[in-house]
Simulated assay, not measured.
Amino acid sequence: MSTQPEPGTGQGEENPPYEQAREELIEVVRRLEAGGTTLEESLTLWQRGEQLAGICQAWLDGARERLEQAIASDDED
């Protein structure tokens, strides 16, 4: 059971905290929505956005799993 994303998904930092990944994802979306980038830049941003979304989802899945375990543990008591 892992509560952190798999290594190798970040740029410079392999497992950024959820908040950092979310903030970077917001910035990527903002830049894509604003337009004005080349096709190559847009594709690079899109790929990074996909990576960041995966990192955020991994953090949320881990948090959900821990919460479910804590609830199950409380139910056993």
Results as ranks from 00 to 15, higher is better:
residue 9 T to F: 09
residue 30 R to L: 10
residue 51 Q to N: 15
residue 9 T to G: 00
residue 74 D to T: 03
residue 49 G to D: 07
residue 52 L to V: 07
residue 31 R to K: 15
residue 35 G to F: 03
residue 2 S to A: 12
residue 52 L to I: 09
residue 55 I to L: 09
residue 62 G to I: 05
residue 34 A to W: 00
residue 17 P to E: 14
residue 8 G to Y: 03
residue 18 Y to Q: 10
residue 71 I to Q: 11
residue 61 D to I: 03
residue 4 Q to I: 11
residue 14 E to C: 01
residue 11 Q to R: 12
residue 17 P to R: 12
residue 33 E to V: 01
residue 66 R to V: 06
residue 35 G to Y: 02
residue 21 A to L: 04
residue 27 E to H: 04
residue 66 R to P: 01
residue 8 G to L: 03
residue 3 T to S: 11
residue 5 P to L: 00
residue 59 W to T: 02
residue 7 P to E: 02
residue 74 D to G: 00
residue 11 Q to Y: 09
residue 64 R to E: 10
residue 22 R to D: 06
residue 1 M to N: 00
residue 63 A to K: 14
residue 24 E to H: 10
residue 16 P to Y: 01
residue 43 L to K: 13
residue 26 I to L: 11
residue 35 G to P: 09
residue 3 T to Q: 04
residue 8 G to D: 02
residue 9 T to K: 12
residue 37 T to M: 10
residue 73 S to W: 06
residue 12 G to E: 05
residue 65 E to V: 02
residue 30 R to G: 15
residue 27 E to R: 10
residue 12 G to T: 04
residue 7 P to Y: 08
residue 50 E to C: 06
residue 35 G to E: 08
residue 38 T to Q: 10
residue 49 G to V: 06
residue 65 E to P: 00
residue 19 E to V: 07
residue 17 P to N: 06
residue 12 G to P: 00
residue 62 G to Q: 05
residue 26 I to T: 12
residue 35 G to W: 03
residue 50 E to I: 13
residue 74 D to F: 05
residue 70 A to D: 11
residue 76 E to F: 08
residue 33 E to M: 03
residue 59 W to M: 02
residue 55 I to Y: 01
residue 68 E to K: 13
residue 51 Q to K: 14
residue 48 R to N: 10
residue 54 G to D: 13
residue 47 Q to H: 11
residue 36 G to A: 06
residue 63 A to I: 11
residue 40 E to L: 13
residue 29 V to D: 11
residue 34 A to D: 15
residue 29 V to M: 08
residue 17 P to D: 14
residue 10 G to V: 04
residue 68 E to S: 09
residue 18 Y to I: 09
residue 17 P to L: 10
residue 13 E to Q: 14
residue 71 I to F: 08
residue 64 R to T: 08
residue 71 I to R: 12
residue 47 Q to I: 07
residue 9 T to R: 14
residue 71 I to E: 12
residue 14 E to G: 03
residue 16 P to R: 08
residue 63 A to L: 11
residue 39 L to Q: 15
residue 7 P to R: 07
residue 57 Q to S: 09
residue 11 Q to C: 04
residue 76 E to H: 04
residue 14 E to Y: 01
residue 68 E to C: 02
residue 68 E to Y: 10
residue 47 Q to V: 10
residue 38 T to E: 09
residue 22 R to G: 00
residue 69 Q to L: 11
residue 24 E to I: 13
residue 35 G to H: 07
residue 53 A to Y: 08
residue 3 T to Y: 07
residue 32 L to E: 05
residue 40 E to N: 06
residue 73 S to Q: 14
residue 64 R to W: 05
residue 34 A to Q: 15
residue 25 L to M: 12
residue 66 R to G: 13
residue 19 E to A: 14
residue 24 E to N: 04
residue 54 G to E: 09
residue 49 G to P: 07
residue 58 A to W: 05
residue 37 T to F: 05
residue 22 R to C: 00
residue 58 A to H: 07
residue 35 G to D: 07
residue 30 R to K: 15
residue 27 E to V: 04
residue 16 P to A: 04
residue 13 E to A: 06
residue 53 A to D: 11
residue 13 E to Y: 08
